[in-house]
Amino acid sequence: MSAPELAIVLVTYNSADWIGRCLRALPAALDGRCAQVVVVDNASADATADVVERDHPQTVLIRNAHNAGFAAAVNAGARAVASDWVLLLNPDTEARPGSLRNLVDFAERNPGHGLYGGRTLRPDGSLEPTSCAGLPSLWSTACFALGLSTAFRGSSVFDPESLGRWQRDTVREVGSVTGCLLLVDRATWDRLGGLDERYFVYGEDVDLSARARRLGLRPVITPDAEVVHGVGESSPGSEGSMLLALAGKVTYSRTHFPPVAAALAVGLLRLGVGLRAAGARLTGKGQGWRVGWRERARWWNGFPARPQHAAG
């Protein structure tokens, strides 16, 4: 049997409520494209892996004995199948008919971008804008610290990582493509070395995009690849997600900024959380920031160095 064109890698963690819908949508979304689906389960406490094994026997299932994190699990899944393309897809997505075929077709017609993404929608059909973002900068971090990105949400000047009010309805080069729907050709994937496993979850896709751009590649979005995304359904609770996202931002700053700029960026992140926590204490709103400040030891210095574990 020849190798499939596409390896679709899904990382699951307590995803039993979504994984069946996600996998059932794939044949129509591929519209004839040859793909092998790989599910890497990060030691779910629910029946996620059992659902995959029972209802989708053609899927390659890797059961991790512990939660290895998103980046490490994706890398393991990509290694499991030889293919021309690697597609990262969240388990809390339902790809629309023809969407994944459109994405691969677009990438084949437009080589040189390296990373390709699509348009994500909420379950009610409205735009869910997090399929892509601008790369973090000292300016965007200062806007966060000073509350400008909140006061002027969606502003291309004061909230630049949001990419303004663009509806993701045109082809456009972007700073980063989000890992919920990210296509990369195998040669580029291997050249980049996959995801950086220092990132447990959150930030690894931004890091990948930044490294791709340094190689002269130009991550891009096509609106013809649409998936419904149940945001956060495959992640920890909102407060846990915040802590992980902040750790990812600290790690990114220290990886991609020069030393002085990195120290300033990390200081601005800490200041932004501290000011929001103080505001939450005074107003009673945004209590998650108080948790973020109280639990700051969990993100203050970014993700810790992690030992390598074999999947199994």
Results as ranks from 00 to 15, higher is better:
T170P: 04
A263V: 08
V228N: 05
S140W: 05
A28K: 10
W289C: 00
R109Y: 00
T59C: 14
W166Y: 13
N110A: 07
D31C: 03
R211N: 00
N90E: 15
V228A: 02
P160D: 05
D124I: 04
S156M: 04
L89P: 09
V104C: 08
E226S: 05
A262E: 05
R109F: 02
A35W: 08
N75L: 05
A68D: 13
P129L: 10
L23N: 01
W18A: 13
L89N: 13
P57L: 04
G164E: 03
V201W: 13
G279N: 13
W289L: 02
L115H: 05
L88W: 07
M1N: 10
V74M: 14
A142V: 07
I19H: 06
S241K: 15
E204M: 09
S137C: 00
S155A: 09
G248L: 04
V220F: 08
S83Y: 08
A16R: 15
Q58D: 15
G203W: 04
W166I: 01
T12D: 09
A78H: 13
E53G: 14
N110S: 13
L127Y: 05
L138W: 03
A28P: 00
A3V: 09
S234K: 00
L183Y: 06
S137E: 03
A265N: 14
G117A: 01
A47D: 15
G292M: 01
P97T: 03
E197F: 06
P4T: 12
G117D: 00
W85V: 12
H56I: 00
H229N: 11
L100S: 08
D92C: 13
P236N: 02
L135I: 11
T48P: 09
G118A: 08
D31R: 10
V51M: 02
A245K: 12
L138E: 03
D17Q: 14
E108S: 12
G232E: 00
L208S: 06
G193E: 10
P4N: 09
A261S: 14
M1E: 12
N14K: 13
R191A: 15
P259V: 11
G164I: 10
F70A: 09
S2T: 14
N67R: 15
R191T: 14
R63F: 10
P304D: 10
A107W: 08
L6R: 07
A142M: 02
G154N: 05
G69F: 11
E295D: 15
N90R: 00
V171A: 03
R79C: 10
D55G: 02
W18H: 15
K285I: 03
S140A: 07
R96S: 13
R122M: 12
W85Y: 14
L163N: 12
P219W: 06
L217P: 08
R101D: 09
G237W: 04
H229E: 10
E161A: 04
A25V: 02
A187T: 13
G193R: 04
R198Q: 14
